[in-house]
Write a protein that binds this DNA or RNA. Structure first.
Lengths: 227, 227
DNA sequence: TAATTTCTTAGTGTATCCAAAAAATGCTGA
DNA sequence: TCAGCATTTTTTGGATACACTAAGAAATTA
């Protein structure tokens, strides 16, 4: 059998069903398609997704560990809510970690990464009046660049989870009037500090950036006392 | 039905089997009874623990999410190893978070909590030559007091996980010669800063405390390149 | 020896089955 | 009418059995 058999594909990207189910449910919760407090019934979800209970159960267990789902013994699983206190806690931690990330980026970013940041920042700036979505996307890119430059996988992982956990309780704080311009200015400051390898300043500005975002976020949801 | 019905007990402490299995496996990994790289076979584990595959599977999935287990599709689950780079990453994050915790404690600790810290610190100091185990326990108490005083549940949860993840790769860095006395002195400094509500100093000292611990840890395992 | 084939073991997912607890429903009598 | 109780249904939690596939080891063959 001398034929080259070029493509054993399919195994490279093999992904267990349970992972697909997990990601699907996770995304649905983050996107708000499954609302806080909503009950998650194994059989029903399994039918909807066309799978058996097994992968659904495993997905729900993992979502519980991540804090997206709350389980009540012998009653079932519910999409987790979050209290204002929880949100404050998350922002407090996030501020410290984003500061760390920016500081590490100031230490470790390569010339190419700095260029990339400048570029993205410029794009945001130029976008100006363009539609929100595109700007939000660029904003995400910008933050991701900083995370990547921090060269700390564990840090990235934790920040990502924290962001997802509050992301579901808003569209985006950037959509608040006046927030946008402000955020862009803050970005420019952070990039400048990172470019100059000014660790202290980059950390400080990143921390303030998150603290400002928290204020905006809190005032945006101000009225409701979730959970 | 006028009787007060004081105690609907028994449901309070009902715990699904899967949780017990999860905690058991988790503890075994942290304690090192299951070694890094060791293969985890569902059937075998289920038999050993006298349960069926179902709770074992769910436990393994959750352990994977926490990073204690690595799953290779179609091959199975293995106790996770960790690279030196990973350890450095964890310590980096931990330093930032312990600094945050100490800073928050300096802001928020009550008089009672401060007293408690002083007491525990004194115990450690007095213990002097007494056996290591007891001192390690007190050290843990001390750190837990700071965490608690930070009033940030999310922070506590993350720090706890990070600690557990490196805990399995040593007995304790405190057992290194000379480290003990040094650690005690560092504790006294941190407590003093917290008592004086000196946020900056408390943060700084806590950060240095972790960085020192990292050095000790790294030199203790220095020779092996895990994973 | 090297390549191929076979065999065994495990992972993955489905389908059932069962007990126990919750929730929904229906009934009853003041 | 409706509170209060009993009965039925649903759901969770767990155990098993089964099919199917892939991976690795062992045996066979070239």
């Amino acid at each position: 059998m001398n034929e080259p058999r070029l493509l054993p594909i399919k195994l490279d990207n093999y992904k267990p069903l349970r992972e697909i189910v997990f990601e699907t449910l996770r995304e649905a919760i983050i996107q708000g398609n499954l609302e806080p407090g909503e009950r998650l019934m194994e059989i029903q979800l399994a039918e909807e997704m066309g799978v058996s209970r097994t992968p659904v159960r495993e997905a729900i267990r993992k979502l519980e560990l991540e804090g997206f789902v709350v389980m009540v013994p012998r009653k079932g699983a519910y999409v987790a809510g979050i209290s204002v206190k929880d949100i404050a806690d998350v922002f407090e931690v996030r501020a410290a970690l984003e500061a760390l990330a920016a500081g590490l980026a100031a230490e470790r970013a390569t010339a190419e990464e700095l260029e990339e940041m400048e570029r993205v920042s410029l794009h945001i700036y130029e976008a100006g009046d363009s539609e929100i979505d595109s700007i939000v996307e660029r904003d995400t890119d910008f933050h991701n660049l900083i995370y990547k430059a921090s060269r700390n996988q564990r840090l990235i992982q934790i920040i990502t989870l924290l962001k997802e956990q509050i992301q579901r309780f808003r569209t985006t704080s950037l959509s608040q009037p006046g927030r946008l311009k402000h955020a862009v200015d803050e970005h420019k400051g952070i990039i400048e500090a990172i470019s100059e390898h000014n660790i202290e300043l980059a950390s400080l500005l990143a921390r303030e950036h998150i603290e400002t975002a928290e204020q905006t976020f809190l005032s945006a949801i101000g009225e409701d006392n979730k959970r």
